[in-house]
Simulated scan of single mutants.
Amino acid sequence: MQVNINGIETRYVLSNEGGGPWLTFVHQLGGDLSIWDQLAGYFRDDFTVLRYDVRGHGRTAVSAEPFGVSDLSDDLAALLDTLGAPSTHLVGMSMGGMIAQQFALDHPSRVDTLTIADSSPGTTPEARGTWDQRAHAARSDGMGALTSTTLSRWLTADFQAAHPEAVEPIREVLAHTLPEGYAMACEALREFDVRSKLGSIVRPTLVVAGRHDSGTPPATSRLIADAIHGAQFELLDAAHLAPIEQSHRFAALLETFLERPV
């Protein structure tokens, strides 16, 4: 389905076979809503599952103007408004985890629970150049120049060798991400920093990290859990896309977490 959100044509998929509480998944930089296909299928009998393509990704249009993560948070709020969802359980991975943190700060009453996977609470000054480099590479050389190195960060070599059928769709989505959409998102993430604000989040929170994540080491994700009172931290035997590489383990963790009283 397509809907205009804050002036941007946005693709979303809603699975509400169960008619239960809302559960929203937000994808990584260079991904799209398809990354959640398996997990959406697992939860759709008990939840109203929402997935969507972030600005400039998948089949959502590229923004005409620069934006920040707060704008991406507002996009999600507007999408929930359009669909009639007062609140949602929120799951974000990597860039999606940054959007989820910002959303929990901007719209706290709309978050039932918060799950953040393989994400950072903010870009340090020394890491800002990395985002600039990725944005420049996408614009000047295209996504093909980034695909191989990105996949090596996202998934362990063992997983890539054992599950080519899972890896190839992820590779295809990354390779076909619009370079300008990717670059603009990089510039938004470069400016992201909520480290001083996370202590104000009071919703039940689950933070998941990949043991072999070189791009966002577990210690970085742990900062989020340490900053949010009562947050649960879990380490999976995976690289950056831990919910995908360890999908069964992640689904079990999330299912147990969502059963906690809110």
Rank of each mutant, 00 (worst) to 15 (best):
H229P: 11
E172C: 13
S15F: 14
F257R: 08
R139S: 06
A175R: 09
E180Y: 13
A145M: 06
A185W: 01
I99M: 08
G30Q: 00
N6G: 06
G215L: 14
I170E: 05
Q246L: 11
T150Y: 01
P21G: 01
H248L: 12
F159I: 00
L33S: 08
Y52F: 14
G122C: 01
V262S: 14
V262R: 15
L253H: 01
D45R: 11
N4P: 09
I8P: 03
E180R: 12
A166F: 07
T124V: 12
D45C: 05
T147F: 01
F103A: 02
D193I: 00
A251N: 10
R59Y: 13
E168G: 13
S221T: 10
I5Q: 05
L33Y: 03
L114S: 01
L241F: 13
H89P: 04
V202A: 15
E172L: 14
R134F: 09
I99S: 05
S63I: 08
T156C: 11
G31H: 00
P86C: 02
G41C: 08
L90S: 06
R128D: 04
R153V: 06
L241R: 10
T48R: 14
M1I: 03
M184K: 14
D32V: 03
D106A: 15
T60E: 05
L50G: 02
A238F: 03
M93S: 12
G96H: 00
V208T: 02
G97H: 02
S152G: 08
E165I: 11
S196A: 08
V262E: 13
A117F: 10
L80Q: 06
P169D: 09
A138C: 12
R139M: 14
G56S: 04
Y42S: 10
A78S: 13
I170V: 13
G84K: 08
F159G: 00
V69G: 00
M93V: 14
D213S: 02
E245R: 06
F233D: 04
D237G: 05
L189N: 04
D46M: 06
V262Q: 14
S94M: 07
Q28Y: 11
F25R: 02
